[in-house]
Design a protein around this nucleic acid. Sequence first.
DNA 1: ATTATTTTTTAGACTAGCCTAAATTTTTAT
DNA 2: ATAAAAATTTAGGCTAGTCTAAAAAATAAT
Lengths: 217, 217
Amino acid sequence: MPSFTEENYLKAIYHLSASGSQAVLTNEIAEVMHTKAASVTDMIKKLSAKNFISYEKYYGVKITKQGKSEALMVIRKHRLWETFLVEKLRFNWDEVHEIAEQLEHIQSAVLIQKLDEFLGFPTTDPHGEPIPDKHGKIAVPLRQPLHGLAAGYSGTIEAVHDSDSNLLKYLNRIGAVPGKTIKLLGKEEYDESLEVEVDGKRLTISKTVAENILVTA
Amino acid sequence: MPSFTEENYLKAIYHLSASGSQAVLTNEIAEVMHTKAASVTDMIKKLSAKNFISYEKYYGVKITKQGKSEALMVIRKHRLWETFLVEKLRFNWDEVHEIAEQLEHIQSAVLIQKLDEFLGFPTTDPHGEPIPDKHGKIAVPLRQPLHGLAAGYSGTIEAVHDSDSNLLKYLNRIGAVPGKTIKLLGKEEYDESLEVEVDGKRLTISKTVAENILVTA
DNA sequence: ATTATTTTTTAGACTAGCCTAAATTTTTAT
DNA sequence: ATAAAAATTTAGGCTAGTCTAAAAAATAAT
């Protein structure tokens, strides 16, 4: 059974593997884990010995089937708990990430099964991210950052990145939540900010924000 | 903020303080923590430095106001989560202890407040134990082990000790659950087993079991 | 193609929490 | 009252996870 720390590393490596199909680099892991490269090297050796990743010195890391399965279970737990917190305990969507970071490490298969059932087997979490099923199967969402849409086109908001509370508060305020239609009216060349329409209202959003809004065309 | 381990030690010391009004001994702590006396001495020093306990070498340990408050918050969380698991997730009462041992360490005051509200501000957990309120106030239950009742008298079951799954399964089977009336028909001198009546049925229970059933006269 | 820079790994050290073995203090028994 | 036994503490060592500083390898630049 992996430790809390091992689970967090696996999650990070899984996410880094998803974006960018190359091997994952030590410094990339160090960055997202807010730790130093030397610490990452140590952990890499441990995870490698447990066959969660394959590792070649100075080259990088690839996640194994077993490692992916482990990571997906942690992600499943995280997203189910987030759903619980919002749907049942009436948390706002910007308040749940930190708490779910703790809850995702609770060890009990039957707990997660019962929680899933209690929630009515949800398929997405409050930020629109797909919830892996009990076999670790996850729907591959077809979507792109709002920024990638061509001017004049509309999209449906599928998901938003969940870890920044301030971003989520802002998105909530402007009504940019999953399910909503958003129209890209135009791009400003200078700073790549976007002119958009949500809920019949026109507004300008920065490039940074646009990159965190995921839409389907 | 105390670590998981520190919280577990504090809980143990709190419980040991409650029974027996003396100072708590190193070996007593070692026993309930399933650890060695040397390890306990180390931890005692740490908890003492943080003013959760007062400590005199070779004499023993007393819990401070601050330590008691900390322990009561962990107990509050444990009992609220147990209530959640049984009431909402439909766990049996003998399956929740281990999971609550993990959940009790989740750090978020607002989570516990919202959980409490979600559960309708329960005052006792599924085993009949009182749940401390958000200020750490706990109802002092008036009760005694069934074993202490005089022959011929009846009592209402208030609570049962929660940590042994097999005991709980057995108590459930014979109907000895909180709220029920139990009558002590007689004691067997030889092995101190008890003849009792629950649900109109007569049965014999061992001394060990009787000690774990807490009744009010 | 050789030097400079960046990335990664190794070496050595630290804290938390645990252990065993030995020393010390307290308690019990004679 | 002193010896024996039990309880407790100290000393030293272990693993997990982290760090800094230095060494080694890979990449980029001249």
